[in-house]
Structure formats: structure tokens, C-alpha cells
Simulated assay, not measured.
Amino acid sequence: MRLIGFGRCGALLLLELFAALIAASGASAAALENVSEIGPSLIQCWHPPAAPDGSAVTLRFGFRRDGSLMGAPRVTYISVKGGAALERTFADSAVRAIEQCSPLQLSPRFAATIGGKVYVMQFSILKRQPVIRLMYA
């Protein structure tokens, strides 16, 4: 293919610019390759309420091979100082993060192994930063 009026260098610059625009728009998000990449992917969607350090909620959930959720995430543990309303808001924010980030973009190899597995992840605030860690799969 030849772009008229640009020459070889101009065409390469145009292609690089186009690739950069696609990457910046998020249109070409990298597919997840393994279970350790699920937490970092979900943290982009988690917007916890202001809660004290050490606040945590543990959720149990699963994904289908297409990356969609298998049912609603289930709260299995919660520890948030500040009363029942803050506990509920904190737990809801973690559930909402999983729902909003789904379906996950999975590599074909990872998709073949994820279906039907139950994952347990803890969403917590440590040193004033949101953290998601895999408990077990």
C-alpha cells in the first residue's frame, strides 16, 4: 500500500500516530493472561468510599469463559470501622467494581481455564490506597 504525498517516512509516522491514538483511547486493551492479572484489572473500576486503613471486604465470584460474571459476587467477610452504613457502602463499591469491569478481556489460553472456577479476592485500604489481592482460586 502506498500513501500518496507522504513518502515512506511520512507513512510510518502516520501509522505510529494512529497506533498511539488507539492505545490512548483504550480500544486495544491487553487481554489478561493469568489469574494474577485479575486484581490489577479490577482496581481500575474500584472507587471505595473514604474508609479507615485496614478496611477490607472479601468477595467470592466466578467468570465464564467469555469473561462475563457467573452470578453476583458474594460478600464472605467484611471489616470496616465506622458503622453498618459504611460497611454496606464499602462492600457495595467492591461488588460494583467487579460488575463494571466485566466482562474481562481474556486471552484464549486463559479463557479456556477460567470457566467455572471460584475466585476469592480481598478489596482493602492499606496506607490510604485501595488494594485488591487474590486470596485463592
Rank of each mutant, 00 (worst) to 15 (best):
G71Y: 11
R109W: 01
E87C: 15
G116Q: 10
Q105A: 10
I78D: 02
P108Y: 00
S68D: 09
D92Q: 14
E99Y: 06
A84W: 08
K117A: 11
V95F: 03
A97I: 06
A85R: 12
V80H: 03
A94H: 04
A91S: 15
E99N: 10
T113C: 01
K117N: 13
L104P: 06
Q105E: 05
K81W: 00
S102Y: 00
I114G: 05
S93H: 12
E87M: 13
R88M: 02
L69R: 10
F90K: 09
Q100H: 10
V80D: 01
G115R: 12
S68R: 15
P103E: 03
L86W: 13
P108Q: 00
A94L: 06
D92W: 05
D92H: 09
P103N: 06
F90W: 11
G82S: 07
E99S: 12
P73W: 01
E99M: 14
S68Y: 04
V80F: 03
A72K: 14
G116Y: 01
L104I: 06
P103W: 07
C101I: 08
I98Y: 04
G67F: 10
F90H: 05
F110H: 03
M70F: 05
Y77C: 00
S102R: 08
A72S: 12
S79P: 00
T113Q: 14
F90S: 08
S79L: 10
G115H: 14
L86N: 14
A111C: 04
I98D: 02
Q100M: 09
T89S: 13
